[in-house]
């Protein structure tokens, strides 16, 4: 095995690639070429892109987002909602638990409650790290409070995005937040709509393996 490593690397090192003509530098002209959209424009583009792939967008403020969420839960007839207890948004929801369907928390490792997670949860609510206007994208860095499967396994994912964390492009988000400098998390995700496939006759069908519905509350 380590033999394979040595052999491959030595073959690569022996190659005469130095003879190839110089290539243009990939790092020139990388500056932000998009017009720097203002917040309103970013929200407009984000909404347009998300709705184009059948995500639901709800606008709310810091004072009424709980009402909006309660409405969504009612409209969808949810029996339960998976919400972290420890996050800023999650604890606010738990504080008014009587307004929501039965609240569940992700307290234990997946192995201990996999069956309920897979077959018993109607929807999960998570925060987001930010968003990307150009492509209509949520940025998620799942962690111990909001694990990776929350935005993946339940059939509905409700995500809250603060409009002041909406970047114009992916490149801008990555750079502004210093992803390289802070170091990458176990899993970083871009989510741009509900799960879909066009594998049969190039015809779009939603809800293949991930959530069938993606609901975004913009605050």
């Amino acid at each position: 095995m380590s033999n394979a490593r040595t052999n491959i690397l030595s073959r690569l090192c022996q190659s005469s690639i130095q003879e190839t003509p110089p290539q243009p530098s990939p790092y020139q002209g990388r500056e932000q070429e998009k017009d720097d959209w203002d917040t309103a424009e970013r929200v407009r583009r984000f909404t347009e892109r998300m709705e184009a792939v059948r995500a639901e967008i709800h606008h709310a403020s810091r004072t009424d987002w709980l009402d909006v969420l309660a409405e969504i839960c009612k409209a969808k007839g949810l029996n339960n909602l998976l919400v972290a207890a420890e996050t800023e948004w999650g604890s606010a929801i738990h504080a008014q638990a009587q307004r929501f369907p039965a609240l569940k928390t992700y307290q234990q490792p997946i192995e201990t409650w996999k069956s309920e997670l897979f077959y018993g949860i109607d929807a999960a609510f998570t925060g987001t790290r930010g968003g990307i206007a150009e492509t209509g994208t949520l940025i998620l860095w799942p962690d111990a409070h909001e694990p990776r499967t929350m935005s993946l396994v339940p059939p509905i994912h409700i995500a809250l995005l603060e409009t002041d964390k909406l970047y114009t492009t992916f490149a801008e988000a990555m750079q502004a937040e210093g992803w390289v400098e802070t170091g990458m998390p176990t899993n970083a995700l871009l989510v741009s709509g509900p799960s879909k496939s066009a594998d049969i006759e190039q015809t779009l069908a939603y809800g293949v393996h991930g959530p069938k519905e993606l609901v975004v509350i913009l605050v």
Binding site: R49, V53, Y106, Q108, P109, I110, E134, T135, G136, T137, D143, A144, P147, R148, T149, M184, P185, T186, N187, A188, L189, L190, V191, S192, G193, P194, S195, K196, A198, G210
Partner: peptide, 24 residues
């Protein structure tokens, strides 16, 4: 590839489950 501005998921994996994490 498919004429999409972006795909639904872009999944960036940098490590296995860390202590304290509950899945992965």
């Amino acid at each position: 590839a498919t004429g999409q501005p972006i795909t639904t998921y872009f999944n960036m994996i940098s490590s296995p489950r860390k202590p304290g994490e509950k899945d992965g």
